[in-house]
Design a protein around this nucleic acid. Structure first.
Lengths: 263, 263
DNA sequence: TCAAAATGTTCATATAACGCACATTTGTTG
DNA sequence: CAACAAATGTGCGTTATATGAACATTTTGA
């Protein structure tokens, strides 16, 4: 939707409005609410009650929703497409073992992410043994492009038109007192990430948390990055920072070699 | 679609045909093919070229597909809904750690699955440290209800109408020479699983592989099971089998306690 | 290079989606 | 607890939209 290619290969009259509405109904379950009633869906989407009803019935008939009492909930069937996506990119087979290996060396969880519309989205995360705790099954969750290390590194891999458009059009959110909201500074930071080949962001998204990210493949070629995060103190010492950066870069090289196609 | 509740709470004229077609187009990417052209999608779905075109354009506009040259591919955006589903059920936060713990004790990977339409579908899998190899990111992948331990245990948790209908309506596939295709025998096996509280299936789905599954919660209450699999020899020794079963059952109890709601 | 086949796009028409109006359920107050 | 009121569910005529044949364009093969 935002900042797409200015390639008018399709006109707005080529869009199936009913299908688009149906997808919006499905997306209404995206905000974590497990169970929704018809009126709730109506409110979220803004569509007429009758419309919502027919679209929801269609989703039930297709096996994507179940009805319990008056509420509707997602079925596990939505997992299949996601699973196919990950399998198609070799996330499970090739990426995961590499992430696990370097994650073990580093003692930190490494995440792989790509860009989706105006956000970053996690594709994989290492399964480090010790930390049963922090594993929140982050695959599929999103984070802002402007205020995270992974996000800014991803921005740096995009072409200039996309970068400019996104930074200019997106109104920055003040997540923490340290969040940089000045577009000019953000542009500089992204440029710096391009120049030096990594991005370090401190306390701008979650207070007290720093992130470090590096791209996979040469800049501008791929659109996937890996990153780690930890308490702000984690990267304070020069030696520790260098070690993290070096390991991440080695991991990126390994992934680049193992990978056949990009996303 | 198959064997649904004979509760006519909606008629077939309440289904939005356009939306249903659009979903079928999306599902065309479900068989592992990463890139599809318009004619390919047309062949898979059986819809007119013009129809496919508009539906695909809609999907691109919604950010679920990308166009590269003449082909279309899924975008990472489909991960978000799946992610929300898993988060909503507490898979990442509560289930995963428990699976990991008992998996460590057992030295085998434990998987959690539920039933989706006429198949079983994996919701989670333990991240055991040693086995970087076998981790194929199985979350979301499906397996038959009739010829696997997990499947038969799931069948055993379903009400009798569903069970009967599915066993009678589904034509068994001869996956291996050992696959039981006689519906009467399958019915007996499912009944046995109900009676004894576990299901053991040997070499019926993949030659040389056995599976063992137990339900979570009391039978008939929930519709989720956990299971392990391994070479047929793994469960040969009585002592080893007993140990596996006991550990699985303890894991099931732990999950049952930790869980709030079922799927 | 040209023809033929396959794919992409347009546009009149039939159809299916829309949302009003009516029916039904749920919640609330005297 | 009854009777009203508000909110939600559903049938149906109207109209906007999806359809697919016809036309345009690209790709394939000779």
């Amino acid at each position: 939707m935002t900042t797409d290619n200015r390639d008018p290969w399709y006109s707005s009259r080529d869009i199936s409005t009913t299908f688009a509405k149906g997808l919006k109904v499905l997306a209404a379950f995206d905000d974590g609410s497990a169970y929704l009633t018809l009126p709730e869906i109506g409110n979220r989407t803004g569509y007429d009650r009758a419309t919502v009803r027919r679209l929801v019935i269609t989703l039930v008939d297709e096996g994507l929703l179940t009805k319990t009492d008056k509420s509707f909930a997602l079925t596990p069937k939505i997992l299949t497409l996601a699973s196919q996506y990950l399998r198609g990119r070799g996330i499970g087979a090739t990426v995961q073992p590499i992430l696990n290996e370097y994650s073990g060396q580093l003692g930190k969880e490494i995440s792989l992410a790509t860009v989706s519309e105006a956000e970053a989205i996690y594709l994989a995360r290492s399964n480090i043994t010790g930390s049963t705790v922090s594993f929140g099954f982050t695959v599929g969750s999103r984070l802002p492009l402007l205020h995270t290390a992974i996000g800014r590194m991803l921005l740096a891999t995009q072409n200039e038109t996309f970068r400019r458009a996104l930074i200019n059009e997106t109104s920055p959110v003040q997540y923490t007192p340290q969040t940089v909201t000045n577009p000019v500074v953000i542009k500089q930071e992204v440029q710096a990430a391009r120049d030096q080949g990594f991005s370090l962001v401190t306390s701008e998204f979650e207070a007290g948390v720093s992130g470090l990210a590096v791209p996979i493949g040469r800049l501008g070629e791929t659109k996937t990055v890996i990153g780690i995060s930890g308490p702000v103190t984690a990267f304070d010492e020069r030696q520790e920072f260098d070690h993290c950066l070096a390991t991440l870069q080695m991991c990126a090289v390994a992934l680049d070699r193992a990978w056949i196609e990009g996303p």
